[in-house]
C-alpha cells in the first residue's frame, strides 16, 4: 500500500478516528455527509492540520508520526491539492498560476491544451468562469508532478454540466498518472462515477453501512443499478 493513514483528532463535536490505506494508481473517494471530517482528514494528509495522534506514511516515507514526533511540512510532501474553493493567486494570470511551482513549463503548455484553457492563459482568475478556474487549479496541481493528488470537492461550486465535464477530465487524468488520488465528495453520483475504492466517513469514522443506508439496489434496471433513497432517481441517471 503506498499511502497509509492512521489518525486521531478531536474536533468540536466528534473525534476523527480513521485507519485505512490506498494502493498506487487508485482513486480513493472519501464520501459521506458534509461536516463528517473528510476535509479535515485531507488537510492532515497535506500537512495543513496536525493530528492529535497517529501515523501518515507514503511509500515508506513517514510524513507524520506522533510517537516519533515527525511532522513533515506541506512544502516537503510534494502534493497536488485542489481546494474546494478557488485558491488561484489573484495577482497572477492563469498561466502564471499553473506555472507557479511547475517542474517544467512545457508541461504547463500541454496541460492547458489538454484541459482546453490554452486561449485563457493571459487572463486573471476573476476574468474567467468557475469551471475554467478549477481546470487551471488542476493544471497547477499536476504541473508540480505530485506524488499524491488531493482533490477536496473540487467541483462542488460548479453547475451540473461543467461538473460532469470536469469529472470526465479527472477520470481521463488517471491514464498516465501513477500517483494515488484522494478525492473528497458528498455526492454519491460523483463517487460512483470516479471511485476505484470508496471510504464512507461519518462523524470521523469509517461507516460502511452508510452507503447501504443511503443507496439501495434496483433489481429491474441494469443501466442504473443504484438509486438514492433520499434523492430523486433522475439525479443518478446520466
Amino acid at each position: 500500500m503506498s499511502l497509509q493513514i492512521r489518525v486521531r483528532k478531536k474536533l468540536r463535536y466528534f473525534e476523527i478516528d480513521l485507519d485505512f490505506s490506498c494502493p498506487d494508481d487508485h482513486l480513493l473517494v472519501m464520501i459521506g455527509p458534509s461536516g463528517g471530517g473528510k476535509t479535515t482528514l485531507i488537510r492532515m494528509v497535506a500537512g495543513l492540520e496536525t493530528p492529535d495522534a497517529g501515523r501518515i506514511a507514503y511509500r515508506g516515507e513517514t510524513w507524520f508520526d506522533s510517537e516519533r514526533r515527525v511532522d513533515l511540512p506541506p512544502q516537503k510532501r510534494r502534493l497536488g491539492y485542489v481546494f474546494q474553493e478557488y485558491t488561484l493567486f489573484p495577482h497572477l494570470s492563469l498561466y502564471e498560476n499553473a506555472a507557479f511551482a511547475a517542474a517544467d513549463r512545457a508541461e504547463v503548455d500541454d496541460l492547458f491544451a489538454r484541459f482546453g484553457i490554452d486561449h485563457l492563459r493571459g487572463r486573471k482568475p476573476h476574468q474567467v468562469s468557475g469551471g475554467e478556474r478549477q481546470r487551471c487549479a488542476l493544471c497547477q496541481a499536476l504541473a508540480r508532478r505530485p506524488r499524491l493528488l488531493l482533490l477536496d470537492e473540487p467541483f462542488s461550486a460548479l453547475d451540473v454540466v461543467t461538473r460532469r465535464c470536469l469529472r470526465e477530465a479527472v477520470k481521463g487524468l488517471r491514464e498516465g498518472l501513477s500517483c494515488p488520488i484522494l478525492y473528497v465528495t458528498h455526492d454519491i453520483n460523483e463517487a460512483l462515477f470516479l471511485a476505484d475504492e470508496m471510504v464512507p466517513i461519518v462523524e470521523g469514522r469509517i461507516d460502511r453501512g452508510w452507503m447501504q443506508r443511503t443507496i439501495a439496489p434496483i433489481p429491474d434496471s441494469e443501466e442504473a443499478p443504484l438509486r438514492a433513497t433520499r434523492q430523486p432517481r433522475l439525479a443518478l441517471v446520466y
Binding site: 497535506a46 500537512g47 495543513l48 511540512p73 506541506p74 512544502q75 510532501r77 510534494r78 502534493l79 497536488g80 491539492y81 481546494f83 474553493e85 485558491t87 493567486f89 489573484p90 495577482h91 507557479f100 511551482a101 497547477q140 508540480r144
Partner: peptide, 27 residues
C-alpha cells in the same frame, strides 16, 4: 488575505518567506 492562498502556496512548496514575498506582498 485569504488564508487559503497561503496554504495553497505552502502545498505548492513555497516557504513562509517566499509566500510572504510572492503571495502576501503582491496581494
Amino acid at each position: 488575505i485569504d488564508r487559503r492562498l497561503m496554504e495553497s502556496a505552502y502545498v505548492l512548496g513555497l516557504s513562509r518567506v517566499a509566500t510572504f514575498l510572492r503571495v502576501i506582498i503582491p496581494n
